[in-house]
């Protein structure tokens, strides 16, 4: 079975470490916040200028001046800080964020990522994604392994305009956990009940399959 959105978030959460500052992109990455292991402290960075993002507010706490990068109303956790956009991107571009999780349309064996623009469709913009992928060392991309029509999104070369070049080393799809090294995807783990053959058939870029590929457990 392919991983559910929640299982993808749960698997990413296993990469968290105590004391990490983490930026979570919009969509599935946001769900990672729900699976921080008990007893572990992480601070969520939101690129509009907040370090220490908390839960959504109650009706009483609701404040128009307190939002996250998805423009949702939020609260702060104890020990949070708030700052300007320049300061926020100094953290991101200066490599101070420990882990960045974001979605993508395509990744390739060179570590390129395409996530913001489909030619011919309305282009809304890259927001902070180009800064995040260029600035972070530790990035996890979460995405579906193939399109609804079965076309692989793990490619020899991205076909869509890039968000960043040569910056992705870890990818979690609904089928597999992969690393990118020396021009190839390396299959590290597979989703429960998903065969290596299925992953091979849905990976268009060069794929290295080690002798033993453990199944994820949840």
């Amino acid at each position: 079975m392919a991983l559910s959105r929640e299982q993808i978030a749960m698997r990413v959460a296993r990469e968290l470490e105590d004391g990490f500052y983490v930026n979570l992109g919009i969509g599935i990455p946001t769900l990672v916040a729900n699976y921080v292991p008990e007893g572990m402290e992480v601070m969520l960075q939101s690129e509009n200028g907040l370090l220490g993002m908390g839960a959504f507010p109650t009706e009483e706490e609701l404040d128009a001046d307190m939002i996250n990068a998805g423009k949702q109303t939020v609260t702060t956790v104890k020990g949070a800080s708030i700052f300007s956009s320049a300061e926020s991107f100094a953290m991101i571009r200066g490599g101070h964020v420990d882990l960045t999780v974001l979605g993508a349309f395509e990744v390739d064996v060179h570590g390129n990522i395409a996530s913001w623009m489909i030619p011919g469709k309305l282009i809304k913009g890259m927001g902070g994604a180009m800064d995040l992928v260029a600035g972070a060392d530790n990035i996890i991309v979460t995405m579906t392994h193939a399109s609804k029509h079965g076309e692989s999104k793990l490619l020899p070369n991205c076909s869509l305009p890039l968000t960043g070049a040569g910056c992705i080393k870890k990818v979690l799809t609904d089928l597999a956990w992969l690393e990118i090294e020396d021009g190839a995807f390396i299959l590290r783990e597979r989703a429960p009940g998903v065969s290596v053959e299925e992953i091979v058939s849905k990976t268009a870029g060069k794929l290295i399959v080690p002798d033993h590929v453990p199944e994820m457990t949840f």
Partner: peptide, 29 residues
């Protein structure tokens, strides 16, 4: 890019006419 935009304003206000950034290298921008 959002960080480049913030930095363009910051640098503009600080009298710095241009700057170098890794953001956007290899992309259409």
């Amino acid at each position: 890019p959002q960080g480049t935009l913030a930095e363009k304003m910051r640098a503009g206000g600080a009298g710095i006419p241009a700057f170098f950034t890794a953001t956007g290298f290899g992309t259409p921008i």
